[in-house]
Computed example of a mutant assay.
Amino acid sequence: MPTHQSRQRQCKPAKMSQQTTPSGLDPVQVSSFRTHLSQSTRIVTIIGAGLSASSGLPTFRDINGLWCNHDVFLIASPAGFRRDPGLVWQFYSERRRAALRAGPNPAHYALVNLAKAKPGFVALSQNVDGLLQRAGLDENPKQLKLLHGNLFDLACAGNCGYVDYDNFVDPLCEVLSEGRVRASVMGADVAEGEKPPKASALLFEGIAKKNKKILGEEKFAEAAPTARDAAPLTELGQEVRVPEAAPELYSGIEKAELPQCPGCGENLLRPRVVWFGEALPEDVMEDVDALFKEEKVDLAIVVGTSSQVWPAAGFCEEARGRGAKVAWVNMSEKDCKNAKKEDWVFLGDAAVILPEILNLEGQE
């Protein structure tokens, strides 16, 4: 078991206790945090993929931005879906299966118990795996805001407005079965000697401009991906970036074989998640804006996120601006680089640390 550390940064170095808790945390700092927690009414928790690490679910960074040699940033984008919806659906079918096989860990249950104990608690989650909901946090929708959507909600890829909530069917269709996906991504569906075509958002944008010039503005239908389609959610201190190398996008799957929208009967269904280059859900962002415009915030807990992806990266500072003290729970100190001197910083597995520092009864 890894050694877990904790510290509270102060203007002057604090004399740390020589004793530690069973999980390696400094009891002085744990006690300080618990005291503030007990006095807190309005609590905001900002959640990233690290919350589900002990459940066995990798983050995008864990797979080095690649999935079966494909650039994840382009697969998980409007450009990727327009270019090859079959490949995108293969990727998300694998993610759905992984999430279904996983289960909530003690960190999920610790947050559920905190929500029950503190009615003013709100979780702002970047996770799409549904584990917080399965742990019980969806009992009060006001306490859980899904910033990036949910793998198990499906929506029309067009504009008919159809949504299928909590669809746990697997596979959604025969071509997305585990056997078919594994065979396809390993190259079994590509004929010997055949090279899958390369494509990039920039290439399609160039073709679109040429077609627009040939056809004229009135006859040209805007359907091609743009450079922004290939860009991930803006990271702090960085410009919107486009992959330099054009990844291979090829599944060989026909659109007729993929999940169809029963609402309009014309478009495909897509995972109801936020893709790179897309805006966060408007209704969720309105709720988040209202959250930080209301009364003061007593405590912000940042769990399992590097706080580099915008706009979620700004929520901690918004809470701080409303008077919140901040606690960080992360595996790596580099993921806490935005911490202030007065913050608590607990390093280690969230599944170990959260149950201990929250110290709530009834945890599973």
Score class of each variant (00 low, 15 high):
Phe91Ala: 02
Arg96Glu: 04
Ala183Val: 03
Gln18Cys: 15
Ala199His: 11
Leu74Pro: 02
Tyr250Ile: 08
Ser55Asp: 08
Ala107Leu: 04
Asn159Ala: 15
Pro247Ser: 00
Glu239Ala: 14
Ala312Met: 08
Tyr92Glu: 05
Ser31Asp: 15
Asp71Val: 02
Glu317Thr: 05
Ser77Arg: 02
Leu172Lys: 06
Gln39Phe: 05
Arg134Lys: 15
Lys116Ser: 03
Leu360His: 05
Ala350Arg: 00
Ala208Met: 05
Gly323Pro: 01
Met285Asn: 11
Asp71Thr: 04
Thr234Asn: 11
Arg7Gly: 11
Gln260Val: 06
Tyr165Asn: 14
Pro104Lys: 09
Arg272Asp: 08
Ala256Tyr: 10
Met186Asn: 09
Gly120Leu: 13
Ile214Gln: 13
Ala107Ile: 00
Lys255Val: 09
Gln18His: 14
Gly86Trp: 01
Lys341Phe: 10
Asp138Glu: 13
Asp170Ile: 04
Pro58Leu: 02
Arg228Met: 08
Glu178Phe: 11
Arg241Cys: 07
Asp153Glu: 13
Val88Tyr: 03
Val345Met: 09
Pro85Val: 01
Glu333Asp: 14
Val273His: 09
Pro2Thr: 07
His108Glu: 11
Ala351Ser: 08
Asn359Gln: 13
Ile207Leu: 13
Ser38Gln: 09
Gly321Pro: 02
Pro259Ala: 06
Gly158Ser: 14
Lys195Asp: 14
Asp138His: 14
Leu111Tyr: 07
Gln126Leu: 10
Leu87Trp: 02
Lys255Asp: 12
Gly179Tyr: 09
Leu269Ser: 00
Thr226Arg: 05
Leu347Cys: 02
Gly130Asn: 15
Arg320Val: 03
His36Trp: 08
Leu124Thr: 11
Asp153Cys: 11
Gly149Asp: 10
Pro196Gly: 13
Leu124Val: 12
Arg241His: 08
Val112Trp: 04
Leu51Lys: 10
Ser32Pro: 02
Asp129Pro: 03
Gly149Ile: 08
Asp349His: 03
Gly65Asn: 04
Cys316Asn: 10
Ser307Asn: 07
Ala223Trp: 13
Val329Gln: 00
Ile75Pro: 00
Gly161Val: 01
Leu354Gly: 03
Leu144Cys: 12
Glu356Asp: 04
Pro171Lys: 05
Gly321Gln: 07
Gly136Glu: 04
Pro13Val: 13
Cys68Gln: 06
Ser77Lys: 03
Leu100Pro: 00
Ala191Glu: 13
Leu347Pro: 03
Ser31Val: 09
Ala231Val: 01
Met16Gly: 13
Pro141Asn: 11
Val128Leu: 13
Glu174Met: 11
Cys11Met: 15
Gln308Met: 09
Asn330Leu: 04
Ser55Gln: 07
Arg34Glu: 07
Glu217Thr: 11
Ala313Thr: 07
Val185Phe: 03
Ala227Cys: 07
Lys209Trp: 06
Asn330Trp: 04
Lys195Thr: 15
Val175Gln: 02
Ala279Arg: 14
Trp328Thr: 04
Glu192Ile: 10
Ser307Pro: 02
Ala117Cys: 01
Glu356Ser: 04
Glu317Asn: 06
Tyr165Gly: 10
Ser31Met: 12
Arg182Gly: 00
Lys118Cys: 08
